[in-house]
Simulated assay, not measured.
Amino acid sequence: MKYMLIMRATDDAKKAYKEMDFNEVITKMGQYNEQLIKAGVLLAGDGLSDDVETTGFVVDFSSTPPAVTDGPYGETHELFNGFWIIQVNSKEEAAEWASRCPLGPGSKLEVRRVTDESDFAGFEDNEYLQKEVEWRKAAENA
């Protein structure tokens, strides 16, 4: 099973982070990533820029065509600032890995299962589900 660990930080966590030794933050995250890699569970992961005013934007589908607006993202109490995608055998194993993440007070990891073919049972004859299988094979061989 694949799970996405979504890192979020409150304003208090962001303030505390700015006061931390950045080298220590990098080291702790690097050690966590290394554990995920050595265990063979890490599929992907990255941090996201919190410079939403210059690099972020929102696509709002409330209108046609959708409206694209620059950040910030409106009233946010938490910033989505990174993610990991892991491959594990159970929800419990995902929770174990998430619990090891070196985050401090005010930070959270939202853990969500990534959908797979079992979520589309009964629709196997859909043209785009069949194409998806081929796309994934091509990506693996690229």
Rank of each mutant, 00 (worst) to 15 (best):
F80Q: 00
D51E: 12
S62I: 05
D46I: 09
N126H: 14
Y73S: 02
P105T: 06
V59K: 11
P72V: 05
G40E: 09
G106C: 02
S62T: 15
C101H: 06
G106A: 00
L42D: 07
D119A: 13
K38S: 14
G47Q: 10
E75I: 06
G47F: 06
F83E: 03
E78S: 04
F61I: 11
I37M: 11
D46Y: 14
D70A: 14
T76A: 09
E124S: 11
A121R: 11
P66Y: 03
G104E: 03
G82P: 00
A94T: 04
G104Y: 00
V52H: 07
G106Q: 04
D119K: 05
A39V: 13
S49T: 15
F61H: 14
S99G: 15
I85W: 01
A95T: 01
V114P: 01
C101E: 04
D60C: 08
S63H: 10
R113E: 12
P105W: 00
T76V: 13
A94R: 02
T54P: 05
V59Q: 13
A95R: 01
N126E: 14
T54A: 13
E75C: 00
E93N: 04
N81R: 08
V111E: 03
G56F: 05
A121G: 10
N81W: 02
L42F: 12
F61A: 10
I37F: 11
T64H: 07
E78C: 02
E75N: 05
D125P: 09
P66T: 04
S62A: 15
Q87G: 01
P105K: 09
E75V: 04
A44Y: 14
V111T: 08
R113Y: 10
A39I: 14
I37E: 12
I37C: 06
K38P: 07
S63K: 13
G106P: 09
F123E: 08
E92P: 06
G71P: 03
S49Q: 07
V88D: 03
L48E: 09
G45H: 08
I86T: 00
T115K: 02
G56T: 11
P102R: 04
D116V: 06
G122F: 12
E117M: 06
A67I: 13
L43V: 15
L103N: 03
V68K: 08
D46Q: 15
I37V: 15
V111S: 01
A44C: 14
G74V: 07
D125K: 14
S118M: 09
D119T: 11
D116H: 05
H77L: 05
T64P: 00
S62L: 14
A98S: 10
I86W: 02
V59M: 15
G106D: 04
G122N: 13
L79G: 00
A98W: 01
E75D: 12
V59G: 10
A67W: 02
E117T: 01
P72F: 03
G56C: 07
Q87E: 15
P72E: 02
P65K: 03
P102Q: 09
T54D: 12
I86Y: 00
T64Q: 14
K108R: 12
R113A: 13
A67H: 07
P65A: 09
G104I: 10
E92H: 07
P102G: 08
P102T: 06
